[in-house]
Amino acid sequence: MLDVVVAVVTTALTNGALYALATIGLSLVWGSMGMLNMAHGGLLALGGYAAYTGSVQLGLPLPLAIVFAMLAGAAMGALLHLLVVRQLLRSSGAGFETAVMIATVGISIALQNALLLLYGGQPLGQPFDVPGSIPVGAGAVPWLNVTIVLVSVGVMAAASLLIARTKMGRAIRATAQNRDAALLMGVPVQRVYLQVLALSGALAGICGVLVSSITQLTPTLGADPMLKAFIMCVVAGLGNLPGAIAAAFGLALVEAAMQFAAGARWGFPTLLLLVIAILIWRPAGLFGRARIQRL
């Protein structure tokens, strides 16, 4: 019995950390600019493959390969801003919310397909690995999972410090809370958007490395974490970072428990049913403040 508990908790913590990391990147972009980045999953995959290229093809040491993955994600995020978001903000006005969703769906597919063409469809092994495990009672917790949780928590802590304490973070929050006022303070809003997308891309990059280390490298590796991140965002209310993290760990626990109780394929459907029930009960999300609908 105890080993089952250890296994469920290990899975829940590992997945929760990964979901949280995927979610904050998504939620940050939504909170600052009202943009749902459907290409976030594609950025995860890009990060995973970039780390692979860095360590296997360029021979970089692993920590540098991870930095390389974050840089690749950040560059793609910046590119997304320059080529798509900037133009849409200028041209589409009130239709921005949906226009940017459609455009990023396109980018996402193009990105995944480009990875497929570059690296082939065969799943590759991510070189990021930590061998061994810690015995806990009757079960064991692999060091890899411990590392994933620690790295995720570390990255999230660094990101929150950046947002809470630095001048750049203050400008990001100011722009999110009142764009016009930020402009009046002299904040170059377009540059802030660029920074936000680059930061979210970097978070997606490292998240992709971690996800592929417990699964495999495929061009669609980001699809599942992004799907879960969507759900976390719905439950927590988009743009609510602490809520998203709490939802990520909570729902990962439910999912892991369901997977052990009823089989792997029922984990996510149960989760979704739970979320739908929550939404019917609280349409603004579990932690979301009921926002007054702008007419």
Binding site: V84, L88, A99, V105, G106, I107, I109, A110, N113
Partner: peptide, 12 residues
């Protein structure tokens, strides 16, 4: 790949 780019380009 082409389809994805077409849709992004058309939106913009």
């Amino acid at each position: 790949l082409g389809l994805g780019l077409i849709i992004a380009a058309a939106t913009v």
